[in-house]
Simulated scan of single mutants.
Amino acid sequence: MASPSLGAGALPDSKASSIWARLPADWQPYVQLARLDRPTGWQLLLAPCLSATCLAGIYQLQAPNYLLLLLFFIGAVAMRGAGSTFNDLIDRNIDAQVERTRGRPLPSGRVSPRGAALFMLAQCLIGLFVLLSLNRFAIIVGLCALIPVAAYPFMKRFTSWPQAMLGLAFSWGALVGWAAVTGGLAAPALWLYLSCIAWTIGYDTIYAIQDIKDDVKAGVKSTALLFGDNVVLAVALFYLVTIVCAELALLSAGVGIFGQIGLLAFAGHLVWQIRKLGGADEAMALRLFRSNGVAGFILFAGLFAENLLFYFVR
Protein backbone atom coordinates (compact mmCIF):
# COMPACT_ATOMS: atom_id res chain seq x y z
CA MET A 1 0.00 0.00 0.00
CA ALA A 2 1.34 3.44 -0.88
CA SER A 3 2.33 5.61 2.02
CA PRO A 4 -0.32 8.26 2.69
CA SER A 5 2.28 10.83 3.69
CA LEU A 6 3.56 10.97 0.13
CA GLY A 7 0.16 10.95 -1.47
CA ALA A 8 -1.03 9.11 -4.53
CA GLY A 9 2.38 9.23 -6.16
CA ALA A 10 4.08 7.28 -3.41
CA LEU A 11 5.90 4.14 -4.44
CA PRO A 12 5.27 0.71 -2.91
CA ASP A 13 8.85 0.37 -1.61
CA SER A 14 9.15 3.90 -0.24
CA LYS A 15 9.87 4.52 3.41
CA ALA A 16 8.43 7.95 3.92
CA SER A 17 9.05 10.21 6.88
CA SER A 18 7.49 13.43 8.16
CA ILE A 19 10.43 15.39 6.71
CA TRP A 20 9.43 14.56 3.13
CA ALA A 21 5.70 14.78 3.87
CA ARG A 22 6.14 18.47 4.71
CA LEU A 23 7.57 19.31 1.31
CA PRO A 24 5.27 20.73 -1.39
CA ALA A 25 3.50 18.15 -3.55
CA ASP A 26 5.39 19.33 -6.65
CA TRP A 27 8.67 18.33 -4.97
CA GLN A 28 7.60 14.77 -4.21
CA PRO A 29 8.56 13.30 -7.63
CA TYR A 30 12.07 14.67 -7.18
CA VAL A 31 12.25 13.21 -3.68
CA GLN A 32 11.43 9.87 -5.30
CA LEU A 33 13.93 10.35 -8.15
CA ALA A 34 16.70 10.94 -5.59
CA ARG A 35 15.37 8.06 -3.44
CA LEU A 36 15.30 10.34 -0.41
CA ASP A 37 12.18 8.47 0.70
CA ARG A 38 14.24 5.26 0.57
CA PRO A 39 17.37 5.96 2.63
CA THR A 40 18.75 2.43 2.42
CA GLY A 41 20.52 3.24 -0.85
CA TRP A 42 22.59 6.15 0.38
CA GLN A 43 23.29 4.25 3.60
CA LEU A 44 24.73 1.39 1.54
CA LEU A 45 26.79 3.83 -0.51
CA LEU A 46 28.02 5.65 2.59
CA ALA A 47 29.04 2.67 4.75
CA PRO A 48 32.14 1.70 2.71
CA CYS A 49 33.32 5.34 2.74
CA LEU A 50 33.03 5.62 6.51
CA SER A 51 34.55 2.22 7.23
CA ALA A 52 37.50 2.91 4.91
CA THR A 53 38.08 6.33 6.48
CA CYS A 54 38.32 4.83 9.97
CA LEU A 55 40.32 1.84 8.75
CA ALA A 56 42.86 4.22 7.19
CA GLY A 57 42.94 6.26 10.41
CA ILE A 58 43.88 3.14 12.35
CA TYR A 59 46.51 2.25 9.76
CA GLN A 60 47.98 5.77 9.87
CA LEU A 61 47.67 6.15 13.68
CA GLN A 62 45.47 9.21 13.17
CA ALA A 63 42.38 10.44 14.99
CA PRO A 64 39.03 10.02 13.19
CA ASN A 65 38.65 12.65 10.47
CA TYR A 66 35.24 14.11 11.29
CA LEU A 67 35.26 16.52 8.35
CA LEU A 68 35.77 13.65 5.92
CA LEU A 69 32.98 11.66 7.56
CA LEU A 70 30.62 14.64 7.09
CA LEU A 71 31.70 15.24 3.50
CA PHE A 72 31.17 11.58 2.66
CA PHE A 73 27.66 11.75 4.13
CA ILE A 74 26.78 14.70 1.89
CA GLY A 75 28.43 13.10 -1.11
CA ALA A 76 26.73 9.74 -0.61
CA VAL A 77 23.24 11.27 -0.46
CA ALA A 78 23.91 13.47 -3.50
CA MET A 79 25.58 10.83 -5.67
CA ARG A 80 23.13 8.11 -4.79
CA GLY A 81 20.41 10.50 -5.88
CA ALA A 82 22.24 11.37 -9.10
CA GLY A 83 22.90 7.70 -9.86
CA SER A 84 19.29 6.75 -9.20
CA THR A 85 18.05 9.58 -11.43
CA PHE A 86 20.40 8.46 -14.21
CA ASN A 87 19.26 4.87 -13.78
CA ASP A 88 15.61 5.93 -14.01
CA LEU A 89 16.30 7.93 -17.17
CA ILE A 90 17.89 4.92 -18.84
CA ASP A 91 15.31 2.41 -17.54
CA ARG A 92 12.12 4.45 -17.87
CA ASN A 93 10.70 2.19 -20.61
CA ILE A 94 11.56 -1.00 -18.72
CA ASP A 95 10.23 0.48 -15.46
CA ALA A 96 6.89 1.06 -17.18
CA GLN A 97 6.59 -2.73 -17.63
CA VAL A 98 7.36 -3.64 -13.99
CA GLU A 99 4.57 -3.42 -11.45
CA ARG A 100 6.85 -2.23 -8.62
CA THR A 101 8.41 0.56 -10.70
CA ARG A 102 5.77 1.75 -13.16
CA GLY A 103 4.69 4.43 -10.68
CA ARG A 104 8.14 6.06 -10.61
CA PRO A 105 8.22 9.72 -11.67
CA LEU A 106 9.52 9.16 -15.23
CA PRO A 107 7.40 6.21 -16.45
CA SER A 108 4.33 7.74 -14.78
CA GLY A 109 4.95 11.08 -16.53
CA ARG A 110 5.18 13.14 -13.35
CA VAL A 111 8.69 14.32 -14.33
CA SER A 112 9.92 14.89 -17.89
CA PRO A 113 13.24 13.43 -19.08
CA ARG A 114 14.60 16.98 -19.38
CA GLY A 115 13.55 17.84 -15.84
CA ALA A 116 15.16 14.64 -14.54
CA ALA A 117 18.38 15.38 -16.42
CA LEU A 118 18.62 18.86 -14.91
CA PHE A 119 17.93 17.47 -11.46
CA MET A 120 20.66 14.87 -11.97
CA LEU A 121 23.10 17.63 -12.95
CA ALA A 122 22.31 19.60 -9.78
CA GLN A 123 23.03 16.54 -7.62
CA CYS A 124 26.25 15.85 -9.53
CA LEU A 125 27.44 19.39 -8.78
CA ILE A 126 27.01 18.74 -5.05
CA GLY A 127 28.97 15.52 -5.42
CA LEU A 128 31.67 17.38 -7.38
CA PHE A 129 32.00 19.94 -4.58
CA VAL A 130 32.60 17.11 -2.10
CA LEU A 131 35.09 15.40 -4.41
CA LEU A 132 37.08 18.59 -5.00
CA SER A 133 37.41 18.98 -1.22
CA LEU A 134 39.64 15.88 -1.13
CA ASN A 135 43.31 15.44 -1.99
CA ARG A 136 44.41 15.08 -5.62
CA PHE A 137 44.81 11.31 -5.57
CA ALA A 138 41.39 10.82 -3.98
CA ILE A 139 39.87 13.08 -6.66
CA ILE A 140 41.36 10.88 -9.40
CA VAL A 141 40.11 7.73 -7.68
CA GLY A 142 36.67 9.27 -7.26
CA LEU A 143 36.44 10.28 -10.92
CA CYS A 144 37.24 6.70 -11.96
CA ALA A 145 34.01 5.63 -10.24
CA LEU A 146 32.08 7.22 -13.11
CA ILE A 147 32.93 4.22 -15.31
CA PRO A 148 31.00 1.54 -13.36
CA VAL A 149 28.31 4.07 -12.41
CA ALA A 150 27.64 4.89 -16.07
CA ALA A 151 27.78 1.23 -17.14
CA TYR A 152 25.49 -0.21 -14.47
CA PRO A 153 22.04 0.76 -15.87
CA PHE A 154 22.78 -1.08 -19.12
CA MET A 155 24.05 -4.33 -17.59
CA LYS A 156 20.67 -5.98 -17.00
CA ARG A 157 20.14 -6.00 -20.77
CA PHE A 158 23.28 -7.99 -21.54
CA THR A 159 24.32 -10.05 -18.51
CA SER A 160 22.85 -11.95 -15.59
CA TRP A 161 25.39 -10.17 -13.36
CA PRO A 162 24.22 -6.54 -13.14
CA GLN A 163 24.62 -6.91 -9.37
CA ALA A 164 28.38 -7.32 -9.91
CA MET A 165 28.59 -3.98 -11.73
CA LEU A 166 26.54 -2.40 -8.96
CA GLY A 167 29.07 -3.86 -6.52
CA LEU A 168 31.94 -2.19 -8.37
CA ALA A 169 30.10 1.15 -8.26
CA PHE A 170 28.59 1.08 -4.76
CA SER A 171 31.78 -0.18 -3.13
CA TRP A 172 34.03 2.49 -4.67
CA GLY A 173 33.79 4.55 -1.50
CA ALA A 174 36.11 2.02 0.16
CA LEU A 175 38.86 3.19 -2.21
CA VAL A 176 37.98 6.88 -2.02
CA GLY A 177 37.74 6.88 1.78
CA TRP A 178 41.16 5.28 2.15
CA ALA A 179 42.73 7.55 -0.49
CA ALA A 180 41.27 10.65 1.17
CA VAL A 181 43.10 9.82 4.42
CA THR A 182 46.37 8.36 3.12
CA GLY A 183 46.81 9.91 -0.31
CA GLY A 184 47.26 6.44 -1.84
CA LEU A 185 45.97 2.88 -1.85
CA ALA A 186 47.14 -0.18 0.06
CA ALA A 187 46.15 -3.78 0.72
CA PRO A 188 43.55 -3.04 3.46
CA ALA A 189 41.62 -0.76 1.09
CA LEU A 190 41.63 -3.38 -1.67
CA TRP A 191 40.46 -6.14 0.68
CA LEU A 192 37.70 -3.87 1.99
CA TYR A 193 36.68 -3.03 -1.58
CA LEU A 194 36.43 -6.73 -2.48
CA SER A 195 34.43 -7.34 0.70
CA CYS A 196 31.95 -4.61 -0.18
CA ILE A 197 31.59 -5.91 -3.75
CA ALA A 198 30.64 -9.37 -2.49
CA TRP A 199 28.28 -7.82 0.08
CA THR A 200 26.59 -5.73 -2.63
CA ILE A 201 26.08 -8.73 -4.91
CA GLY A 202 24.51 -10.56 -1.99
CA TYR A 203 22.09 -7.88 -0.83
CA ASP A 204 21.14 -6.77 -4.34
CA THR A 205 20.37 -10.37 -5.26
CA ILE A 206 17.96 -10.35 -2.34
CA TYR A 207 16.48 -7.09 -3.65
CA ALA A 208 16.07 -8.59 -7.15
CA ILE A 209 13.88 -11.39 -5.77
CA GLN A 210 11.03 -8.85 -5.74
CA ASP A 211 11.15 -8.46 -9.52
CA ILE A 212 11.72 -12.00 -10.80
CA LYS A 213 8.33 -12.36 -12.51
CA ASP A 214 8.36 -8.88 -14.02
CA ASP A 215 12.00 -9.18 -15.10
CA VAL A 216 11.13 -12.29 -17.10
CA LYS A 217 8.33 -10.41 -18.85
CA ALA A 218 10.53 -7.38 -19.51
CA GLY A 219 13.40 -9.54 -20.79
CA VAL A 220 16.00 -8.26 -18.34
CA LYS A 221 18.43 -10.30 -16.26
CA SER A 222 19.59 -10.55 -12.66
CA THR A 223 21.48 -12.84 -10.32
CA ALA A 224 18.18 -13.71 -8.61
CA LEU A 225 16.99 -15.19 -11.92
CA LEU A 226 20.37 -16.80 -12.57
CA PHE A 227 20.59 -18.57 -9.22
CA GLY A 228 16.93 -19.61 -9.13
CA ASP A 229 16.31 -22.27 -6.49
CA ASN A 230 19.94 -21.93 -5.32
CA VAL A 231 19.60 -18.25 -4.42
CA VAL A 232 19.99 -18.81 -0.66
CA LEU A 233 23.19 -20.79 -1.13
CA ALA A 234 24.55 -18.20 -3.57
CA VAL A 235 23.86 -15.27 -1.25
CA ALA A 236 25.40 -17.22 1.65
CA LEU A 237 28.59 -17.77 -0.38
CA PHE A 238 28.83 -14.08 -1.27
CA TYR A 239 28.30 -13.13 2.36
CA LEU A 240 31.05 -15.59 3.35
CA VAL A 241 33.42 -13.88 0.92
CA THR A 242 32.30 -10.55 2.40
CA ILE A 243 33.40 -11.55 5.90
CA VAL A 244 36.64 -13.25 4.84
CA CYS A 245 37.78 -10.24 2.81
CA ALA A 246 36.74 -7.83 5.56
CA GLU A 247 38.77 -9.82 8.07
CA LEU A 248 41.80 -9.67 5.77
CA ALA A 249 41.32 -5.90 5.53
CA LEU A 250 41.22 -5.55 9.31
CA LEU A 251 44.21 -7.79 9.90
CA SER A 252 46.34 -6.05 7.28
CA ALA A 253 45.50 -2.66 8.82
CA GLY A 254 46.33 -3.78 12.37
CA VAL A 255 42.80 -3.49 13.73
CA GLY A 256 42.23 -4.65 17.30
CA ILE A 257 39.39 -5.83 19.52
CA PHE A 258 36.74 -3.16 18.87
CA GLY A 259 37.01 -3.47 15.11
CA GLN A 260 36.86 -7.26 15.39
CA ILE A 261 33.74 -7.01 17.55
CA GLY A 262 32.18 -4.79 14.89
CA LEU A 263 33.02 -7.34 12.21
CA LEU A 264 31.63 -10.19 14.33
CA ALA A 265 28.36 -8.31 14.83
CA PHE A 266 28.22 -7.54 11.09
CA ALA A 267 28.74 -11.25 10.34
CA GLY A 268 25.98 -12.15 12.77
CA HIS A 269 23.59 -9.83 10.93
CA LEU A 270 24.42 -11.47 7.60
CA VAL A 271 23.82 -14.93 9.10
CA TRP A 272 20.42 -13.72 10.32
CA GLN A 273 19.58 -12.62 6.77
CA ILE A 274 20.49 -16.02 5.34
CA ARG A 275 18.34 -17.80 7.92
CA LYS A 276 15.37 -15.62 6.98
CA LEU A 277 15.92 -15.79 3.22
CA GLY A 278 14.77 -19.38 2.67
CA GLY A 279 11.23 -19.23 1.30
CA ALA A 280 11.11 -15.43 1.63
CA ASP A 281 8.31 -13.64 -0.20
CA GLU A 282 8.67 -10.20 -1.81
CA ALA A 283 7.89 -8.35 1.43
CA MET A 284 10.52 -10.31 3.36
CA ALA A 285 13.06 -9.82 0.56
CA LEU A 286 12.56 -6.05 0.80
CA ARG A 287 12.86 -6.18 4.59
CA LEU A 288 16.10 -8.15 4.40
CA PHE A 289 17.52 -5.83 1.77
CA ARG A 290 16.71 -2.75 3.82
CA SER A 291 18.33 -4.28 6.90
CA ASN A 292 21.69 -3.97 5.15
CA GLY A 293 21.48 -0.21 5.59
CA VAL A 294 21.96 -0.86 9.30
CA ALA A 295 24.40 -3.75 8.81
CA GLY A 296 27.04 -1.57 7.15
CA PHE A 297 27.05 0.86 10.05
CA ILE A 298 27.61 -1.99 12.51
CA LEU A 299 31.05 -2.58 11.00
CA PHE A 300 31.70 1.17 10.84
CA ALA A 301 30.80 1.57 14.52
CA GLY A 302 33.40 -1.01 15.50
CA LEU A 303 36.06 0.61 13.34
CA PHE A 304 35.19 4.08 14.61
CA ALA A 305 35.54 2.92 18.22
CA GLU A 306 38.83 1.24 17.33
CA ASN A 307 40.02 4.39 15.58
CA LEU A 308 39.31 6.46 18.68
CA LEU A 309 40.98 3.95 20.97
CA PHE A 310 43.96 3.37 18.69
CA TYR A 311 44.72 7.08 18.47
CA PHE A 312 44.20 8.15 22.06
CA VAL A 313 45.85 5.24 23.87
CA ARG A 314 48.54 4.24 21.37
Rank of each mutant, 00 (worst) to 15 (best):
A2L: 03
P4E: 02
S5H: 08
L6M: 14
L6V: 06
P12Y: 11
D13L: 11
K15Q: 15
K15W: 09
A16E: 09
S17K: 03
P24Q: 13
Q28D: 06
P29E: 13
Q32T: 04
L33D: 10
W42M: 11
L45V: 13
L46A: 00
A47W: 01
P48T: 00
C49P: 08
S51G: 12
S51N: 08
C54H: 03
L55D: 01
G57Y: 07
Q60N: 00
A63L: 00
A63E: 04
Y66F: 15
L69S: 05
F72I: 13
A76I: 06
V77K: 12
M79Y: 09
G83N: 08
G83Q: 02
N87H: 09
L89V: 05
R92I: 12
I94T: 05
I94L: 08
D95E: 01
E99H: 12
R100T: 07
R102M: 03
P105L: 00
L106W: 07
S108Q: 12
R110C: 09
V111D: 02
V111I: 08
Q123F: 09
C124M: 15
L125K: 02
L131H: 00
R136P: 02
F137D: 10
F137T: 00
A138N: 00
I140S: 05
V141D: 02
L143R: 11
L143C: 08
L146Y: 09
L146W: 09
F154S: 08
R157M: 04
R157D: 05
W161L: 14
A164I: 07
L166E: 08
L168Q: 02
A169F: 06
W172R: 03
W172L: 09
L175A: 00
V176F: 03
V176Y: 06
A180L: 09
G183P: 09
A186D: 15
A186P: 02
P188V: 03
A189S: 03
L192C: 04
G202V: 12
D204W: 00
Y207F: 07
Y207E: 01
A208E: 05
D215P: 06
D215E: 07
V216A: 14
A218C: 10
S222R: 04
S222K: 01
L233T: 14
A234N: 09
A234D: 06
V235S: 10
L237F: 04
Y239N: 01
I243E: 10
E247M: 14
G254Q: 07
F258Q: 05
Q260I: 01
Q260D: 12
Q260N: 14
I261N: 04
L264H: 05
A265T: 13
A267F: 04
A267D: 09
L270E: 13
R275F: 05
K276T: 01
G278L: 06
G279Q: 12
D281S: 00
D281Y: 02
A283P: 13
A283L: 11
A285N: 08
N292R: 10
G293P: 06
V294E: 12
V294F: 14
V294L: 14
F297H: 14
F297M: 13
F300L: 08
E306C: 01
L308V: 15
F310L: 11
F310G: 11
V313W: 15
R314C: 00
